[in-house]
Amino acid sequence: MCAKTLTIDGNEVSAADDATILDAATEAGIKIPTLCHLEGVYDIGACRLCLVEAVGIPKLLPACTTKVVEGMNVRTDTERIRKYRRINLELLFAERNHVCSVCVSNNHCELQTLAYNHGMDHVRYDYLFPKWAVDTTHPRYGMDHNRCILCTRCVRVCWHVEGAGTLNTAGRGARSQIIADLIQPWGEADSCTSCGKCVMACPTGALFQRGATVGEMEHDREKLEFIITAREKKQWIP
């Protein structure tokens, strides 16, 4: 195996023979935004946020799936690319309901962070916001399709890390959705091992641990009564 040298944003970098542009950039400390990329599972080139320009190649290249070529001259942050990235993010925010203030992932969401980083202070497109159901049939986890960006990171960890093959994609276009088994309520999907890897993989608040969402906190009044009874009557029974 021989290494390759290339230029990324004016910096000469070396990369392993089978490295992708994203690998090479990451190693050189150059940050390329991604959403569908997840370390540990294979790449699909779907979110199109990591598109970069390469001198002499008319098409934009997805950094996550394009292998480095000797002498390649890559530019990751041109005005044109920044414009496309911002439109891409705006499209995602207009496509489904991503109201951050009431989201379980608020302030630790990859989509939100990318929007901040790209100066997306408002969305110019009309919000389409179709009504999607929230699946809370699983005892430990919930799935909110309204927050889903269909990056399929959950599907890939479910199949290729856990090996359960519970999650999948169904439907097409804007009507695509993540499903459990054969479009069953998640809680009834026999193949699910409840490993929670999908929740760890999710870049937004689409997959979450139950008990953590807005409105889910329950006041345990009985506990209070128990303590008062114990203090006043010296009885340790409810």
Binding site: R48, L91, I149, A174, R175, S176
Partner: peptide, 11 residues
């Protein structure tokens, strides 16, 4: 007819 995989085509 968009398959829904990539953002520009789907959204």
């Amino acid at each position: 007819e968009s398959c829904g995989k990539c953002v520009p085509c789907r959204a």
